[in-house]
Nucleic acid binder design. Structure first.
Length: 278
DNA sequence: AAAACCGCCTGTCGGC
DNA sequence: TGCCGACAGGCGGTTT
């Protein structure tokens, strides 16, 4: 699913091809993708204008639009934002919205499960987008230090896996990278946040950074639906250590990997490397 | 505060 | 072979 590395890869791939091209047509085929605008308002505000920049916060993509607006996209589970230089290529079956730059190509939002969202707001006015407004620290920023992570964990009895998935604490981790980070740091997903030692917190901090950076370098993880902005698969699925590998041998110690529901999510771990009771 | 659950969707897969 | 329920999981919301 699109988590931080996938969304960042989409951003980097779209950046060179979607800026400074006037929108000649905007079509919305799945009305409910729009959160706070009617299709008419949405089209009126975008037509004739260009995207000036494309940034990311957590799992949100933010297109800045001429005239003081921002187009905020979230891919949720199966959303794709793909640029087609040849607009005559037929639309994919589940195409929710199309942004046409005329002869200069087309940006399409494709989404099998239709959970993805589009918002159009005045620049910086994110109050109506609750998930964006309350987003926590960027894990690849300088602000996210071992000391910061220590503060997040201290005095909390929440399971560490649940905390990693809490977007108001750390922005951009999803199920795959939370599991991979906990494995690299050798911490059981059900450990209570305040039970981690300083050494473990440092390991976890480093693991989150390493895993996210390596995943970005590999254009993200394509298990099924995710594609880059050019429609290509990522390759980090080939480098996953434990996600989706229940019953296989731990790459570190050879013990059979397990999975279990933690905080409502399937969580993968090695019962030997990641001890429940340290 | 935290956890459990639901709704939103569709495609895939395992079991019968 | 075909049908059916379980499952996948991001996020907002409600309830416990």
């Amino acid at each position: 699913m699109p988590e931080l590395p996938e969304v960042e890869t989409v951003r980097r791939s779209l950046l060179p091809v979607v800026l400074h091209k006037p929108l000649e047509a905007v079509e919305v085929h799945t009305t409910r993708i729009l959160q706070h605008k009617t299709v008419e308002e949405f089209r009126e505000l975008l037509l004739g204008r260009s995207f000036l920049d494309l940034s990311r916060r957590g799992k949100y993509l933010i297109f800045s639009v001429e005239g003081g607006w921002e187009l905020v996209a979230h891919l949720r589970m199966t959303g794709r934002l793909i640029f087609y230089s040849n607009p005559s290529i037929p639309w994919a079956k589940h195409t929710s919205a199309v942004f046409s730059f005329g002869s200069q190509g087309e940006l399409r939002f494709e989404d099998v499960r239709k959970f993805g969202t589009l918002d159009l707001v005045p620049t910086g006015q994110y109050e109506t987008i609750k998930g964006l407004h309350t987003l926590g620290v960027e894990p690849l920023s300088e602000e996210f230090s071992p000391e910061y992570l220590l503060k997040l964990l201290t005095g909390r009895r929440i399971k560490v896996k649940a905390l990693l998935l809490d977007q108001t604490k750390i922005a951009g981790l999803g199920n795959i990278y939370a599991d991979e980070s906990l494995f690299q740091a050798a911490i059981h997903p059900q450990r209570s946040a305040d039970s981690l030692t300083e050494e473990e917190i440092e390991r976890l901090h480093g693991a989150i950074r390493d895993v996210l950076e390596l995943a970005i370098a590999n254009q993200g993880t394509t298990l099924r639906d995710y594609r880059t902005g050019f429609g290509q698969e990522g390759s980090f699925q080939n480098r996953l250590q434990i996600y989706g590998k229940k019953g296989e041998e731990c790459p570190r110690c050879g013990v059979k990997l397990e999975h279990r529901k933690v905080a409502g999510r399937t969580s993968h771990f090695c019962p030997a490397c990641q001890r429940e009771q340290p």
